[in-house]
């Protein structure tokens, strides 16, 4: 049996409704395929008139059962059910949602074969250290989960060095504390020692990158997994919606070292993750 429910909301002005309140029509007809259509009109909670069309197809399935079982189906109910009419009672019986029993032959069997294979390989490689070129994990590069999406770390380092060489460092030279200018507090003057709080904050901001365009399913663990290979992570902050706890689409990752952060920025910017292209940039300090 299948149920098809379609709802059409028809707007009407208050003037039209006068006098129609109580004569909401009701239609029902059955077509040649045995599909029964019931059209009802009712007023919903908002005072709007609603047309409800229900299409019902009934299929009779005949099942052959044992004679005694058929006899038992006619028994009168007893105990707590005494006197109740035939058919399932909604207070004790309900239909749960659809679940699937997926039967597969590739269960533990396949796993165990794989495992024994793996063990053999591992045994052959005892003494040799396996190091993935991509993520530095202890597996073969071909088995790396990032194989198709990420550059090997070595190449990345080379690239990074190349770009460094190509672009000469052009850090702004601190202006000389020329006489005759504005007043500059001693702490801000060239050569002055910065306070510890500042340096801490700077350091943290320095090695922090902002990742945007994350999907809603992303968790802190995912971010950790993605960035762990570049170096030590000191903090991961994933912006979440206060109510729904769903990821808002961006995260901050603080590395211990700025170089690691640079590496991560280079590698992950434009990286496809969860069907989205990630964007990575340096985190801007909240004060600036």
């Amino acid at each position: 049996m299948s149920n098809l429910i379609t709802m059409n909301v028809t707007k009407s002005s208050w003037a039209d409704e006068v006098g129609e309140e109580f004569d909401l029509p009701f239609e029902t007809y059955t077509d040649e395929n045995g599909v029964k259509t019931i059209i009802e009109y009712k007023t919903n909670d908002d005072g709007k008139k609603v047309k409800v069309t229900r299409k019902i197809k009934k299929t009779l399935i005949t099942e052959r059962v044992n004679k005694v079982a058929a006899e038992r189906k006619k028994w009168a109910k007893f105990g707590d059910e005494r006197g109740k009419k035939a058919g399932p009672d909604l207070s004790t019986t309900s239909i749960d949602q659809q679940i699937f029993l997926k039967l597969s032959t590739t269960g533990k069997h396949a796993e165990s074969i794989e495992e024994s294979d793996l063990n053999k390989k591992k045994a052959a490689l005892i003494g040799k250290k396996i190091l993935c070129r991509i993520c530095k994990g202890d597996h073969f590069t071909t088995k790396c989960p990032y194989k198709d999406t990420l550059q090997p770390l070595d190449e990345l380092n080379k690239d990074l060095e190349a770009t460094k060489e190509a672009a000469p460092v052009n850090e702004p030279v601190a202006p000389e504390n020329s006489a005759g200018g504005k007043y500059i507090p001693p702490s801000m003057r060239a050569g002055a020692k910065s306070t510890t709080g500042d340096s801490y904050k700077e350091r943290r901001d320095d090695a922090t990158i902002r990742v945007t365009n994350l999907s809603g399913d992303t968790t802190e663990g995912d971010i950790h997994d993605l960035f762990r290979r570049f170096g030590g992570i000191s903090r991961v902050y994933l912006a979440r919606d206060r109510e729904t706890n769903i990821c808002k689409g961006f995260a901050f990752v603080s590395f211990v070292l700025r170089d690691d952060a640079a590496k991560a920025l280079q590698a992950i910017n434009g990286y496809g993750y969860d069907n989205l292209i990630l964007r990575v940039e340096w985190a801007k300090s909240s004060t600036s």
Binding site: F78, G79, D80, E81, G87, D89, T93
Partner: peptide, 18 residues
Amino acid sequence: QVVNVWYSHNGERLGTYH
């Protein structure tokens, strides 16, 4: 402390034993 008996094909409760 209650025994229930059900029709297995549709889940209808036939009765209880107290």
